[in-house]
């Protein structure tokens, strides 16, 4: 499972720059008064909050396991 996630991340880091280059060419981000820049910014914040949630989720899962083990 962990390996799969890692593979996905590596593939993403390889692909994202090429995706961005495409965006630069078609100038999607600069269309409609650059509104998609705001969209990208909001998505970044969303991703950050989700990552924090995942971190907390794992932390609390560990606690649950500990409670189960110790009774």
């Amino acid at each position: 499972m962990k390996k799969r996630v890692l593979n996905f991340l590596i593939i993403m880091t390889l692909f994202v720059p090429s995706l961005m280059a495409q965006v630069e060419r078609t100038d999607f981000m600069r269309s409609i008064g650059k509104i998609y820049v705001v969209v990208a910014v909001i998505l970044t914040i969303f991703t950050g909050i989700i990552l924090f949630l995942i971190y907390l989720d794992r932390k609390i899962s560990r606690l649950e396991k500990q409670i189960e083990k110790n009774g």
Partner: peptide, 15 residues
């Protein structure tokens, strides 16, 4: 130059 991205004030500066 800024155009609509002036709205980022609420999603960048406020952070």
């Amino acid at each position: 130059i800024l155009y609509e991205t002036i709205r980022n004030l609420y999603f960048h500066v406020s952070l």
